[in-house]
Design a protein around this nucleic acid. Sequence first.
RNA 1: GCUACUGUGGCUCAGUCGGUAGAGCAAUUGAUUCGUAAUCAAUAGGUCAGGGGUUCGAGUCCCCUCAGUAGCUCCA
Length: 643
Amino acid sequence: MKITLKDGSVKEYPQPMSVFDIAKDLSEGLARAACAGVVDGETEDLRTVIDKDRDVNICTANDPEGLAALRHTTSHVMAQAVKRLYPEIKLAIGPSIADGFYYDVDSETPLTAEDLEKIEAEMKKIVKEAYPIERFTKPREEAIAYMRERKEPYKVELIEDLPEDAEISFYQQGEFVDLCAGPHLMSTKDVGKAYKLTSLAGAYWRGNEHNKMLTRIYGTAFGKKAELDAYLTMMEEAKKRDHRKLGKELGLFMMHEAGPGFPFFLPKGMALKNTLLDYWREIHRKAGYVEIASPIILNRRLWETSGHWDHYKANMYTTVIDEEDYAVKPMNCPGGVLVYASEPRSYRDLPLRMGELGIVHRHEKSGQLHGLMRVRCFTQDDAHIFMTPEQIKDEIMGVARLIDGVYSLFGFQYHVELSTRPEDSMGSDEDWEMATEGLRTALDELGLDYVVNEGDGAFYGPKIDFHLVDAIGRTWQCGTIQLDFQLPQRFELEYMGADGEKHRPIMIHRVAFGSIERFIGILTEHFAGAFPTWLAPVQVKILPISDKFADYAKKVKEAMDKAGIRGEIDLRSEKIGYKIRSAQLEKIPYMLVVGQKEEEEGVVAVRSRAAGDEGQKPLSDFIEDIKKEIQSREIRVMEKKEE
RNA sequence: GCUACUGUGGCUCAGUCGGUAGAGCAAUUGAUUCGUAAUCAAUAGGUCAGGGGUUCGAGUCCCCUCAGUAGCUCCA
């Protein structure tokens, strides 16, 4: 028989061979990760025997399927080690995931970090013992009885959910058997040495918060030790750019027990925030938006009309004032609606794009707070667009382009999701259908790729979400575009049409940054605190060589103030090297070293964070250059330097 | 909210078997006046998150509360 491999090469064998045997034959390296044998594009069992000429796609650890099978096998080895050390522990599920694998287990006594070490040591033995991994199947009823006998209640539950006529597959390695669809490596020895157990956490059985919480053991595995090391180093690097750490070091924001989840912005963080807001106002002015501000606290009747009292109360801060119920706004939309309704509107006014940098408060559960990324009080760069049905598509496309422009400016990668009607929602089926189609059409027309999130929309309408990818590959929802037929109805909004009749407008809710706080968190990690000059809280630090040049330094600072450049002077009696070091650690884009030469000639010695010493320049030239850089919102990439 | 872990000067951390709190950086003061990533010295700074318990004695052991961290669930 003759087989054609994925790489195009052709191999001939005198007799039928299994996918595994072929992989094994090819080379040591391939065999090791020849886990997910793919024949004719279909994943098949590794023992699938190939008896005639075919195309065979053998994975290596570099292929996503191969890596997944390697990790999945590692999770089985881990489960085997856990059962050897703690036979009373019950196993739940153990899949491979984006960064590695996990196994959920049910343990009476909590596992500790020391247990992880023990488990790793036991895994090492199992790998060394080189058990062949064998697959076998049983009919459903037999499979249930089998797992009952082995005292694995979670496995029993899993099998019970499978169809009655299902043939259940198991994988065995030595004394260990696990319910599993596969595929796996051929032997425990193929797991190799490039694996590590990374952390312990809780996780609900089947992801349902009403179920028991199990212990989740996380780990990761790679084809090569060097790749594992690179991954671990990358995670260490990511920790260094954590916005909570940098936020403290750079004096951007702080948290206080007095208000868990309510961030305090420090002067430098506020400078950054205001710069972002200036940018936001500029692009929105250009895109034809007007700006409003609506009150933070509004009464219960309003929230009942909007539907929030029924659908969002669990997350709202409420209070009683003069015997009337009030709520702190968790969203800005009702305020925007009231402004729309404050005067008669004509079709000539539409689309009416009304922006609001609205501060909202939401009572998030304590465990979900996370620095600036998840807070209880945040600023939404909100806008509500009121329009006619004919304007829907163009408006959505306009918003999507605006959001794309914002993300591109910072060099962000993002992906798009379309979320449809949730269970707890209001409005008619037809409205939901129409709104969802409107969003879908706009996305298709823009040629944007998106995934659909069934049942993930807001209670008043479907939405398009923009998810940014952060420094360690996590994604955060930032921008959203939501189409809403409900609020205009509930508030009986109208406009006078060209036909002289009253019509109901349609509404878009949208944000670009999403939450300014979250966006600042993501920006901080994205730039590792080294913000581009236009955003940097301090753009220039003036460093006099000695106290004698303090006066000239002050003159330079005044020139900065006058030019609208954010500058500071370091007047400490320290040596220039020390001042440079501290300015560099503060990640300030430009340092101006001034001494005798500079004072006499009216120049400054420029040192940039990115490129180091850039030589002398007349002060006026420097100001002109930096103003240009700020205006263009250019990103000068920071070069790798030791710290 | 749930599971596990953590909480010691402004920051980063040490503190042994339960014996009465320590370092570096930062700050302040003094000396130094210096040319591109750390000058020297002195001083000040802590109800060991808060409360309760065990003990002759608790930063250390136990319980409760609060806050934080990882993940789950939920979300911008």
